[in-house]
Design a protein around this nucleic acid. Structure first.
Lengths: 241, 241
DNA sequence: GTCTATATGTGGATAGAC
DNA sequence: GTCTATCCACATATAGAC
């Protein structure tokens, strides 16, 4: 609107336009989903010309890609820094809770609230364009964490770890996605958007699950099991499903 | 199946077209997402005319709605039957594992594999049309379960239950959604699509989380971190978006 | 670098012949 | 009930003037 564009000889404005597009798209994608937002929706909200997206990024998909790259970099840097504090030579002292915190907390309290929503909501988006971006941006960080968890939980087979990882991932992504389903059930006083509460209440839940006894009887030689976590008092028999 | 189809001889052909549309749409929505599938994609795959969707359902959104209603009915009937076996007069004997199994198992081994994917993948879809359907079809069943869990876990405040419910929901939906992210990390030998394995390995995880000690003191006084480990120094507050 | 104008295709949905 | 033909709004993307 404002024609301060008069003072725009440098690329300052170019970068500004890029960021305006990314900011607007991030919010819209989070609110309505990638597929339901058009490039015109984005440029309208960003206050830039319709052609700017294609000049600066080349395609709508490239905008999504840039959104993730830009936010994930600091998040993953922090995750790795926190993980580095958790792992050391004394494997016996690995803390599952700390590893899970290092994995999850930065995804909840870094970046923008819109990106948090977007990341959670796109994590299971089947749209091929979205999936392509997801697989290109999510990289080796997760491997480092599961390697650390593996050392911290030597009583678990790879298969058991796989299923527990799914529970961890699912909880983390669902909390990030923050659909309002649970508010609908529990009431408006409750919300998944509070990062401190999420860490406070979800990490202990996941730690208890991760450190619980293995389902399969250990056939081979195993290292000792964790002893600090309180055993679940209510795990009675299950009938087969 | 065949006899039931023969029973409604009148609308046999009409119902057939309806079902062809629903079947095709269920698969396509699961594979690519609601927003990325057009009505023409659906009618092409179903082998029916393009106008059939609007004649039989009125809109694309109504097709999604019907897909959910048709599959959710038997799933929720089974859930409620299983829950009924878990709850009784002797609250002391409520089994968290059994309640969770009643809640989750039917969503994994009933219906089609496409519907399982679709349900998981749409659970956090922000598209307004999809959300509208989600809120219209998911009903009181969840309330019954959380009421039962509340009785089985009297040591938990409503807030603690809220966060644990989020973890349970998230794990269940993520497993249903079965994006291939974890295969990418753990290898192709592992898959979330096996319902028996899901029940076998995920329910104990969630039961351990659900039955773990409360984070907050029952008296109402708060303490730092409930786990054995020292509180992570990295969980300090950070400003939101 | 930014804009207008437009190319080109597809979306959901409908009318009306059969 | 089914199909052809079609409406029209909007999609992504580009060309070329400024």
């Amino acid at each position: 609107m404002t024609k301060a564009a008069a003072a725009n000889r440098h690329e300052a404005l170019s970068a500004d336009t890029r960021d305006k597009i990314l900011d607007a798209a991030e919010v819209l994608f989070a609110e309505r989903g990638y597929s339901a937002v058009s490039t015109r929706n984005i440029t309208d909200k960003a206050g830039v010309n319709v052609a700017a997206i294609f000049y600066h990024f080349g395609s709508k998909q490239a905008v999504l890609d840039e959104i993730f790259k830009r936010r994930l970099e600091p998040i993953n840097r922090r995750r790795e820094a926190m993980l580095a504090e958790c792992i050391g030579p004394d494997v016996e002292n690995y803390s599952v809770a700390d590893i899970l915190t290092a994995f999850i907390a930065p995804t909840l309290d870094l970046g923008t609230s819109s990106f948090k929503l977007l990341a959670g909501r796109t994590s299971t988006d089947p749209n091929p364009e979205v999936r392509e971006v997801m697989f290109s941006v999510y990289d080796s960080v997760a491997r480092s964490f599961f390697a650390a968890l593996d050392k911290a939980c030597p009583h678990l087979s790879k298969k058991e770890m796989f299923w527990r990882a799914a529970c961890v991932y699912g909880a983390m992504m669902y909390i990030r996605a923050d659909n309002s389903r649970l508010q609908y059930i529990f009431g408006d006083d409750f919300s998944l958007s509070n990062a401190e509460e999420a860490v406070r209440y979800a990490i202990p839940f996941l730690t208890a699950g991760m450190t619980s006894p293995p389902v399969d009887e250990p056939a081979g030689r195993l290292r000792k099991m964790p002893t600090k976590t309180a055993p679940s008092s209510n795990t009675k028999k299950r009938k087969g499903s």
